[in-house]
Write a protein that binds this DNA or RNA. Structure first.
Lengths: 215, 215
DNA sequence: GAAAGATGTGGACGGTGTCAACATCCACCA
DNA sequence: TGGTGGATGTTGACACCGTCCACATCTTTC
């Protein structure tokens, strides 16, 4: 959690045993502290919950302090979006690596499935951050998740499950499917669906994606 | 566009030569006028663009006037969301009806495809309204679009293209696919994709959905 | 025709993002 | 060594927002 709640200010005289979280007076590394607080806020209340003055308040600093580190609110939100994308990519990778199946084809299919499952699971576990991650970001800001999906699809080709012809542009339909599901069930109109039903729906979605690549 | 610009309200006192925009004193049918203005604002700037005071200003009425007709801002936004959903459902129906193919199987497939295409096209033509339509609405508020998709799928079963076993819960994967696509390309990270590429991507998505139902 | 209710107005309050002016502290150099 | 310039944080102000309350005005109803 990187809590930098230290107060042993400045002291430059030779001796410097700062424990890697705080630096000098001016509150030390305010930027990172602000981002962290903003992430918490984004997690709790989504994009609109990231309000500069509240972030400053929670960080124990005056409103406006943030303007020394971020151009404006959007700039800060973008940083939270980055964190969300990283968290998402992380979970995808973790889930993918957990697959222990040997048979190449089954393994590739299973890993692709896990990638999609992780995408959706993250959106359900962290609806706020997920929403932030895709709120007002443009392509260049996008990092992580796409790569893992791409790798999983490559593996499907290598294993002979997915034909090279169908491989081209295959990321998109997969992405769209899980992204739409995530949107609908995390913060969208289906967010109140009972867990059992939701799980069944997710499995059906992943089945259909699997079908669509095989045929 | 469903503009409900009706103004001939009551007026029982013989004489009534109001020129079709105003009715009686109290601005007449303020509610509908406000909704219409809010829809325009939502179309131009999305959910966050629907701001009560601006709606009032554009409607030529004091701020606060809206509070005689809507509990709060969310209440007004919900009304705009309804309009967005109606517009979406409308386009889906229109596109579906336009299909002239005779062969039952081809016809069913084609109609399903048109439903999906319309969904995406609407999101691209009216990104603001589309965003509003799915912003903070819960299932009970949802109207229209789902039914048309359902019908198209039923037709696929009737034509023998889609097996009854796969029919169960088939709405969801289809919906998720087009919804995700719409999100990513209308206001999401892929919104700057060149039109040609985007069209190709959409066609591939619809191909994959078709595949996933057949196999 | 007067009272009761519906509808629109004006003003106020607390909250927000952002700008400008000011205060403080660090690092560096004479 | 000590002073200064630039980075960093603070205070105050402004315009805008959603919403509440008191008041004004029109309509309907008895």
């Amino acid at each position: 959690m990187v809590v930098p709640d230290v107060d042993n200010v400045n002291i430059k005289t030779s001796d410097d045993r700062y424990d890697a979280a705080v630096s000098s007076y001016h509150h030390g590394n305010l930027r990172e502290a602000l981002v962290q607080t903003a992430v918490e806020l984004g997690r709790e209340k989504g994009p609109d919950g990231i309000v500069i003055r509240e972030v400053a308040r929670r960080t124990g600093v005056s409103h406006n302090a943030a303007y020394r580190h971020f151009a404006d609110r959007d700039d800060l939100v973008r940083e939270v979006a980055r964190a969300g994308q990283l968290g998402l990519a992380d979970l995808m990778l973790t889930r993918m690596r957990r697959v222990r199946v040997k048979d190449p084809v089954e393994r590739a299919r299973r890993r692709l499935r896990e990638v999609g499952k992780a995408y959706v699971e993250y959106s359900l576990a962290e609806p706020g951050l997920f929403a932030v991650a895709f709120s007002g970001v443009s392509l260049p800001d996008l990092i992580g998740p796409y790569e893992h999906l791409s790798d999983a699809l490559d593996e499907c080709v290598a294993a002979g499950f997915l034909s090279p012809a169908k491989r081209e542009g295959a990321e998109l339909p997969c992405w769209a499917g899980v992204h739409g599901f995530a949107m609908l069930y995390s913060t969208g109109p289906l967010q109140d669906t009972p867990r059992r039903e939701r799980d069944a729906d997710l499995n059906r979605l992943l089945d259909r994606i699997d079908d669509s690549l095989r045929s």
